[in-house]
């Protein structure tokens, strides 16, 4: 099997993304597609929008480019990158989860699951303060901050 240097990904909106193969094989789904020889022209990713796909590519790139060493600085850099990466609004996170699940990027999936879990279990103090402000009229209730937040969203 011969590998090309770059891979073309076609997303939901029909846009094409040209990425290095080392980056493209980060998601297992794409790796398998390449292995199965489906990558002659371009890889169709009909479930992923361009906004999400560019985010995913950005993440894969960063992880490929960061040297795989035990160096503290590199690790910390990657960690802060991941931290910023999941600082997204709920809609984006939701789409990211579905895309990650489809593309099967184990590391990123774990990160996002944990992010949602953290959202369920509570917020950072700044965020809680913000919620308190927004939901001042219901906040006096004894029910947890977060569940009020969820409920107020539904109203």
């Amino acid at each position: 099997m011969s590998y090309s240097k770059t891979i073309v990904l076609t997303n939901y909106d029909g846009e094409t993304f040209v990425v290095d193969e080392v980056v493209a094989v980060e998601p297992q789904t794409i790796e398998h597609m390449i292995e199965d020889g489906c990558a002659n022209t371009s890889i169709p990713l009909p479930n992923v929008t361009s906004k999400i796909l560019s985010k995913v590519i950005e993440h894969c790139k960063k992880h490929v480019e960061t040297p795989n060493s035990n160096e503290k600085a590199a690790k910390a850099d990657l960690k802060s990158f991941d931290f910023d990466f999941v600082k997204a609004d709920q809609g984006t996170l939701f789409d990211l989860i579905l895309a990650m699940n489809y593309l099967n990027i184990k590391e990123l999936l774990d990160l996002i699951y944990q992010t949602v879990a953290d959202m369920i279990k509570g917020k950072t103090p700044e965020e809680e303060e913000e919620m308190r402000r927004v939901n001042a009229w219901v906040f006096s209730c004894f029910v947890g901050v977060t569940c009020l937040y969820f409920k107020s969203k539904k109203m």
Binding site: Q90, G91, F94, I97, L98, N101, L109, Y113, Q114, V116, A117, M119, I120, K121, Y149, F150, K153, K154
Partner: peptide, 19 residues
Amino acid sequence: MDRFQDLPHDIALQCFIRV
């Protein structure tokens, strides 16, 4: 969280096990 309510069962479960 309203959007997250629509998460498929297995994905939601993956989040819940971390709570």
